[in-house]
Design a protein around this nucleic acid. Structure first.
Lengths: 150, 150
DNA sequence: AAATAGTTGACTATTTTACTGGGTTTACCT
DNA sequence: AGGTAAACCCAGTAAAATAGTCAACTATTT
């Protein structure tokens, strides 16, 4: 489990999607405009999210993306690990022989630590974050940005 | 708060130090050999750890590094943030005006999330990790590697 | 048929990571 | 005093990850 800006972009985009796509699909262009993320970068991220089965793409006019599951059933950890390809962060790839045929300190340590963070984040759903009033307010205010173009 | 391999290197090195430097200072060369991290990279990391007041350098023969505080008083979060220079991960630098003069979704969201992870990691001390038998065992077995050279 | 929007892949620039190699300074030891 | 072991400091660099661009293509709706 790594925490980088890439994962943050993905979580932000998924939140935006969760907030807006209840009825109709939402285009990446809309998300790109609202969250100020490059469209093509979003495409990359959503390609991974789609393969991970978290979003569904709808082609053609009126198309866009929708969540494949309810916001309650999507947690932060899986979003992050969907976009962060994890090169096995241990030299041995988890075999435990990376250090002169013995396990390295990293194993019991970082692996466990990262597992706990994963555990922590996997217990936070998109719905939970959206339910915070302040987040909903921000999302609502961001809608104003697109209004002039509609 | 970011979680990258850089932070993992730092935590691993600090654990090694905590385990070995109770009496005499430990050289970076020793840590580099045991943990298989490049010496010069360790120097970079320890330069930051020293500036953060977590380790003390002792020059000259017989010198090396020691923890400035007890392992109980050093937590994982501060190690990671000492080496991970945090470019403010929000475009506005925390001013909350990054998104058309309104706060971006990232603010309440990722900032809070990352604060919670920090909180979590700041409650785990070096001593706590070392107290786990498995970690101590690994550290002990790694000592064998250096023996032939002594 | 035309327009919309996802899909794919190759390609580029920037930044961060990880490492190399050179030096200087400090302290200990013979 | 001179040698040596170590921290300390810096400039550079190779590899990787991040972030973004571009262009061609496919599917769908109107």
């Amino acid at each position: 489990m790594r925490l980088t800006t890439k994962g943050r972009y993905a979580v932000t985009a998924m939140l935006d999607l969760a907030f807006h796509s209840e009825k109709a699909p939402i285009t990446l262009t809309d998300i790109a405009t609202r969250q100020i993320i490059s469209l093509s970068y979003l495409e990359q991220l959503f390609s991974r999210l789609r393969k991970a089965g978290m979003v569904t793409g709808v082609r053609g006019p009126g198309g866009g993306y929708q969540l494949s599951r309810t916001p309650e059933e999507i947690n932060i950890a899986e979003i992050i690990s969907a976009v962060d390809e994890q090169l096995d962060s241990t030299k041995c790839g988890g075999k435990g022989n990376c250090h002169n045929n013995g396990p390295c300190l990293t194993h019991d340590l970082w692996m466990g630590l990262s597992a706990q963070i994963y555990d922590y984040l996997s217990n936070i759903s998109l719905a939970e974050i959206l339910s915070k009033a302040s987040v909903a307010d921000i999302a609502k205010s961001q809608d104003q940005v697109l209004k002039p173009f509609l």
